[in-house]
Design a protein around this nucleic acid. Structure first.
Length: 421
RNA sequence: GGAGAGAUGGCAGAGUGGUCGAAUGCGCCUGACUCGAAAUCAGGUGUGGGAGUGAUCUCACCGGGGGUUCGAAUCCCUCUCUCUCCGCCA
């Protein structure tokens, strides 16, 4: 949620910021909703003030044992009027809020302006892809090794699910443990949250109301419950409706969770293999910072994700996303892309974002310095890393001519072997 | 699944229809005392919205929603959550 005060005081900044995303701001609709809202609030308040005055007068008279029946009779009418006004007030507030909730975050000034991923900027490249002759992709490698079974997975759950077996299953678990250990050693605090959350949580981080079609939805009794698309949702919402002492910031959490995505609208993309699944594992980094700390914290968080790739000796590059390619809630995003020999290109394996106070405003997460006023804090998060895609990257980058796969040194203690064959 | 008890400010905890945004204690801030500190004393100390250049005025908030009433923290309905006991269960 954008700051309502910013819209009121500096609408140009908002209009220009949204334009960078290719979003046209409907000024007429905004001004109409805002004016209607304020008008009805003032009307209702004036009437309530009047009612309160008369009620106080009734109380005074009754205490003095005097007759107040004429006031009481006159007030009955006011009560009826007020009921209608309060309904109008709620509707006006809801309409205004609904409008605000559809506006994406404004890009940070350092974000390049562009329409789509072609305008993203490479800011860093690490490692050199090994020369592999006629590289196999992870599906061929995994299937031949007997550690990946997509056909039977389809039998269980349809497309975009997978079964890992033997060393494949162990590789997934090893990666999770390895990543978690590395983050814990760096001082991040592990969290193991629920995988089903209330709609409020999805609203807080920005998935709702706009992106319901991307979510898996279930229910408990009559009440809706959503499967998390990322640990960002439960971990960020841990502090919803709270005021944290500013001295505690930055707060750094990481969480290993499954992620569930309907992938609506991506039917043609990445249909082969396990790059794009309805269910996958992710170790997620989530940080809460003061506005002053936030820019450095984005760098810190991104570096933490990069450490995993470097420890696994996987070549990657860091991309600064342009305004048109960023997620709805993001103010600035770095994507980490890992080298995939079979595709002869880099593919996204992590996305590290700084949300400014956009999520904190929606989720009502604030920080208060001693003697200061509560202010929305800044939230950040990033994958550290997407486990399934790391699994893919290891198979493809560490493949050997005989179809076996070497185990990265850092992972050998977890795997208990140095090669998968 | 059954029975019962609860939810009040940063915390603890009063308040069962009007002078209650809410006693009291703790915590925190300011001042006095002191060379300084502790102790003591005095004062202050919630959040959000609306109007106004401003001092300020005003509205809402006692778990959520609805109702009764001139007036609700207080009465009624409903939901959620927490705790205790019984049953079931990974």
């Amino acid at each position: 949620m954008l700051d309502a005060a910013l819209l009121r005081n500096d609408l140009d900044t908002v209009v220009q910021g949204l334009a960078k995303r290719g979003v046209t701001f409907d000024q007429e609709a905004y001004q109409g909703l805002d004016a209607a809202r304020r008008r009805v609030i003032q009307e209702a308040e004036a009437l309530k003030a009047e009612r309160n005055r008369v009620s106080d007068e009734v109380a005074r008279l009754k205490r003095a044992k005097e007759d107040a029946s004429h006031l009481i009779a006159a007030q009955a009418e006011v009560g009826r009027n007020l009921k209608a006004l309060e309904t109008a007030e709620k509707e006006a507030e809801a309409a205004f809020k609904a409008f605000m909730a559809t506006l994406p975050n404004l890009p940070h000034e350092s974000v390049p302006v562009g329409k789509d991923e072609h305008a993203n900027v490479e800011v860093k490249r690490w490692g050199t892809p090994k020369a592999i002759e006629k590289p196999l992709d992870h599906v061929d490698l995994g299937t031949k090794l007997g550690i990946l079974d997509l056909d039977r997975a389809a039998k269980l759950s349809g497309a975009r699910f997978s079964i890992l077996k033997g060393a494949g299953a162990k590789l997934e678990r090893s990666l999770v443990s390895f990543m978690a250990d590395l983050h814990a050693q760096a001082g991040w605090t592990e969290v193991l949250p629920p995988y089903l959350v209330l709609p409020e949580c999805m609203y807080g981080t920005g998935q709702l109301p706009k992106f319901e079609q991307d979510l898996f939805k279930t229910h408990r009794g009559e009440d809706p419950l959503y499967l998390i698309p990322t640990a960002e949702v439960p971990v960020t919402n841990m502090y919803r409706d709270e005021i944290l002492p500013a001295e505690q910031l930055p707060i750094r959490h990481f969480a290993f969770t499954p992620c569930f995505r309907s992938e609506a609208g991506s039917y043609g993309r990445d249909t082969k293999g396990i790059i794009r699944q309805h269910q996958f594992h992710k170790v997620e980094l989530v940080a809460f910072a003061t506005p002053e700390q936030a820019a450095d914290e984005l760098e810190n968080l991104t570096l933490q994700a990069e450490r995993i790739l470097e420890a696994l000796e996987l070549p990657y590059r860091r991309m600064l996303l342009c305004s048109g390619d960023m997620g709805f809630s993001s103010r600035k995003t770095f994507d980490l892309e890992v080298w995939l020999p079979s595709q002869d290109t880099y593919r996204e394996i992590s996305s590290c974002s700084w949300f400014g106070d956009f999520q904190a405003r929606r989720a009502n997460i604030r920080a208060k310095a001693a003697g200061g006023k509560p202010q929305p804090l800044h939230t950040l998060n990033g994958s550290g890393l997407a486990v399934g895609r790391t699994w893919v990257a290891i198979l493809e980058n560490y493949q050997q001519p005989d179809g076996s796969v070497k185990v990265p040194k850092a992972l050998q203690p977890y795997m208990g072997c140095d090669v998968i064959r």
